[in-house]
Design a protein around this nucleic acid. Sequence first.
DNA 1: GTTAGCACTCTCGCCCCTTGAGTGCTAAGC
DNA 2: GCTTAGCACTCAAGGGGCGAGAGTGCTAAC
Lengths: 346, 346
Amino acid sequence: MDISERKKRILRAVIEDYIATAEPVGSKTIAKHAGLDISPATIRNEMADLEAMGLLEQPHTSAGRVPSPGGYRFYVNELMEWHRLSIQETERLNAALHLKAQELDRVITEASRVISQLTKYPSYAISAGPSHVTIRRFDLLMVERQTFIVVVMTDTNLVRNKLLRLPADLSETQIQLLNRLLNASFTGLTSEEITPELMNMAKQTAEDAYALLAMAVSFAIEVMKEQGTYDVHLSGLTRLLEHPEYRDLERVQPLLSYLSEEKALSTLPMPDDSQVKIYIGPENVAGALQDTSVVVASYDIGDHMRGLIGIVGPTRMDYAKIAARLYYFADGLAKFLGPGAPPPEH
Amino acid sequence: MDISERKKRILRAVIEDYIATAEPVGSKTIAKHAGLDISPATIRNEMADLEAMGLLEQPHTSAGRVPSPGGYRFYVNELMEWHRLSIQETERLNAALHLKAQELDRVITEASRVISQLTKYPSYAISAGPSHVTIRRFDLLMVERQTFIVVVMTDTNLVRNKLLRLPADLSETQIQLLNRLLNASFTGLTSEEITPELMNMAKQTAEDAYALLAMAVSFAIEVMKEQGTYDVHLSGLTRLLEHPEYRDLERVQPLLSYLSEEKALSTLPMPDDSQVKIYIGPENVAGALQDTSVVVASYDIGDHMRGLIGIVGPTRMDYAKIAARLYYFADGLAKFLGPGAPPPEH
DNA sequence: GTTAGCACTCTCGCCCCTTGAGTGCTAAGC
DNA sequence: GCTTAGCACTCAAGGGGCGAGAGTGCTAAC
C-alpha cells in the first residue's frame, strides 16, 4: 500500500489511542500527540483520506474515527512494534508456566486457563495429535476368570488401558500366547493398516481366544484414533463481558453461544505454519467471529505433535502485547513438552 | 402454616401464572382463572394478606404480585403437583440416556450437556467418589531399559497406568519380585494406611529397586486420592441468557463469573441424602446464588459411589417439571451406571 | 500545503408528558 | 360480615422535544 509517512503516523496514533480508550478518536486528540506538530484541520484532511482508503471508519458523521479491520491489518503488518515483555511480565509468564507434570490434556487445560487469566480474554487450546500413530507394545493381564486388562503403549509414549470382561475362560498360557501374537502382529501398524484380512489371519491362529484379541485390537485402534484427533479446550469465556464492546447483551450473546458449543471450537482458526497468527474480524471464516479477532500461537511438541494456544476478543485489542505474550508462552510450552523436554518429574 | 384453602388456590394461581409469563400477576388475571368464582377486589384483599405473610412480593406499588422465595418454598412443599412426564418426554430422556459406554467422567460430562439441553438451564454434574478406595492389583511392566509401566487397579474396578522412566537397570526377575512385593504388601490398603513405616519395611526387602517401588506406590496413592475427590462439570452456561430475568447484563455477569470459576463449582449444593432437592434463592449459601434456584438429583452408582446432577436457574422456574425430569434422568443414570449395571459394551 | 473559522450533523442525556396497568380504600349489596 | 363495584392514586415505561457537546467538512486566508 502506497501511503505517506505522515499518514502512517496518524493511523498509528488513532489505532493506539483507540486500543487504549475504546472511544472514537478525534482530530484534536491526535494533534495533542507528542511528535506530531500539525493542526487538527490538517489531521482531519489526512483522516478523510485514510477513511477513503478503507483504513478508518466513522461510527456516525459527528463522531471520531475508529480503525476498520483493514486498518488493524495494516497496523499489524507494517506499523506495530512487537511488544517487548517487561521483566515482571516474563516472570509472571514463567510462574504460570510452572505447570505440574501431568497428562498432556491437563497441561492443555491449565495453559488455557492461565493464558485467559493473563490476557483477560477467553482462551482456547488445542493439541493436535500426529497423523500416524502406531502401537508399540501390548500387555494383556488377567485379573480373574473372565476379567482382563489390556494395556497398550503407542509410539508417542502414551499408555492407555481398559478393563475387559468377557465370558471366556482362558489359561495363563493362552494369555501369554495371545500377548505374543498381539505384539508380533499388531505393533508398528497405523489404524488403517489393521485390515479385515489381518484380523482373519489372527483368527486362524488364536481361535479360542479370538474374542479377547479382537477386543484388545479394537481398543488399540480407538487409542490410535483418539491420538490423531484434536482435543480442544476453552477457558475464561465470561471474560468477554469485562470488555466495553460487549457491554451490550445483544452483541455478546451470539458470540458466547457460539463459543460454548463444543463443535464450534473446531472451527476456530488452527494455522499449521508460523508461530503467531492474527485473524482480524472478517478474516475469520466463522460467522459469529466477524467482529472479533483471534490471536493464536502454535508450537511444536515433538513426535510430530503440535499444539495451539490462542485467545478470542474484540477487534480492538492490544495486538502487540497479546501476540508477544502468546509467543512467549507457546515457546515455553514447547520447551516444556517438546522433543528435548526432560522426563516428567515425580 | 395456617392458611385458608382459598388463599392457597390464589397463591398457586399466581405462582403458576408467573412461572409461565415472567410478568407480575394482577388480580384481574387471577379472577379470570377457571375455578375461582370471585371478584378481583376480593382477590386483592387476599393477595394483600399473602403479601403480609411473606409469600408474595410487589416489585413496586402499581405492579402485580410476584412470588417471594418463601412463596416458592411453600408452593414446592405443599401446593405443587409433581409433574408426570408425557410419553414424548420420557422418550426424549430415554434417547438422551443412550450414552455410549465410556469412561465415567465422559458419561458425567455428556449427561450434564444433555440435561442442560433438555431443561434450557446450565447444568452441573458431580461424581463423588467413595471415601475408602484400595488398590486391588498392581502390574509392573518393563518396556525397555529404564522405562517401565505401572498399572494399578482399584477395588472400584478402575484401571490406571503411568509410564515411568528412571535410571535403574533391573532384570526381569527383579521386576517380578517387585511385582509380587507390591501385590503382597500394598493391596487392600487405603492411602492413609500406607505409612512411612510400611515403606521402610519395603525398603529393606527391595533395596536395589526401591526407587521404582516408591514411584509405583506413590502413583497408587495418587490414583486413590483422585478417586476420592469430587469431579465437577458444568455445561450450558450461556443458556442463562435465554431467560428474561437475565436480559440485564449487570445481573448475569456476577452469576456467569461465579459459575465459570472452577472452584466455585464445589460450593454448589451437594446433598447427600434424598433424591431431588430444591434450593430456592437465599436458601443457597453461595452469595452469587441468592437470586437463583438450584434443583439437584442424586443417585447411587454402586461401590459406595454417588452422583449428582443439577441445574441452576432463576427462582422463577417450573419446579414441578424440572424436578421430575431430573428425577427420571438420575434414575436412568443409576440404572446405567449402578450396582446391577451390565458391563460396558464394545 | 497548512490552518483558522464556522456552519452543520449527530449522539446522548435530560425532562416532561401521557398511557396503562394495578392497587387500596370506601361504601353499598347480599 | 364477607363480597363487590367504583374511584382516586401510584408508578413504570415509552415517546417527543430540547440543549449540550464533540467532531466533522468546507471555505478562505496565510
